[in-house]
Nucleic acid binder design. Structure first.
Length: 272
DNA sequence: CGAACCTCCTGCGGGC
DNA sequence: TGCCCGCAGGAGGTTC
């Protein structure tokens, strides 16, 4: 499931194929995503991308003349650079034919993703992006910010760091992993986190995301990069999806519970 | 405002 | 072996 590292891996993969490369045409094979895909998406034909950015888990492709594209991979989405002669797979929903004999394919079995065209305006001001919290790898995300955000929260720290208004890009996998690194139990009330604990958690979130990006993200089932390859961070997960298995640090069985309607994992010995 | 819950969808895996 | 059921999950929307 794409979180920040997987989206960043995708961004890095597609960027060199898109910048300055003319879009010959667009084919929407299945437009029923989380929001309907614009039926006139092919009006971006003959245009080209000037930048490929990421904001949280959203990808933004700025076009030279026709505004921008906002793409979210949802639960099971992926963007791949493909050979136009390669057969379509089930769930290849949107195809951009690029000059130079390549295709960008948006693939999304569960169709929780988003593929929007904004003809005009700043994509960062779009309602989906406008209220997002700070980027975890930016200076705006620090212990002070986290502490202030947590202060008014009755919810657990795990649910809190998954809230995009607190910090973007931290999904279910990295929430559990970051809390393990920081030695904080996921069920701890957010408002009860001390300053030093907030500092440690900020650093843990940053390090786990950075390292996962270096490994090309985490592949549990669906995620592949723009070349169709999986990410390799899964083998570095300490707690996620390891319920009942021995902690990789102290051998205590990893516990799991549902928090915020999401499966959550922690080591009862390493995290207090 | 925050918190809890619902919803979209398909693939997979457990159980029988 | 094969079928069926339930679950997984990002995040906006709804309700209280």
């Amino acid at each position: 499931m794409p979180e920040l590292p997987e989206v960043e891996t995708t961004r890095r993969g597609i960027e060199p194929h898109l910048i300055g490369r003319r879009i010959l045409d667009v084919v929407v094979r299945e437009g029923r995503l989380r929001q309907p895909v614009a039926p006139d998406l092919d009006r971006i034909s003959d245009d080209h991308a000037t930048t490929v950015r990421r904001r949280g888990k959203y990808l933004i492709i700025d076009l030279a003349a026709q505004g921008s594209l906002i793409i979210h991979l949802g639960m099971s989405g992926s963007l791949r650079i493909a050979d136009p002669n390669a057969e379509f797979r089930k769930h290849d929903h949107i195809v951009l034919n690029l000059k130079g004999g390549r295709q960008l394919r948006y693939h999304d079995p569960r169709r929780f993703g988003i593929f929007l065209h904004l003809p005009t305006g700043d994509p960062l001001e779009h309602p989906l992006l406008r209220k997002l919290g700070p980027e975890p790898l930016s200076n705006a995300f620090d212990a002070d910010h986290l502490r202030r955000f947590c202060r008014s929260r009755k919810a657990s720290i795990k649910v809190t760091i998954m809230d995009a208004k607190c910090v973007v890009g931290v999904g279910n996998i990295y929430a559990s992993e970051a809390l393990f690194r920081a030695g904080i139990r996921p069920g701890t009330a957010a408002r009860r986190l001390s300053g030093p604990k907030c500092q440690g958690l900020v650093e843990a979130i940053r390090s786990v995301l950075r390292e996962s990006i270096e490994q090309g993200g985490t592949t549990l089932r669906d995620f592949v990069n723009s070349d169709g390859e999986p990410g390799y961070f899964r083998q570095r997960l300490y707690v996620y999806d390891r319920g009942g298995e021995p902690c990789r640090s102290c051998s205590t069985p990893i516990r799991s519970a549902i928090m915020g309607q999401r499966s959550t994992y922690w080591c009862p010995s390493c995290q207090s």
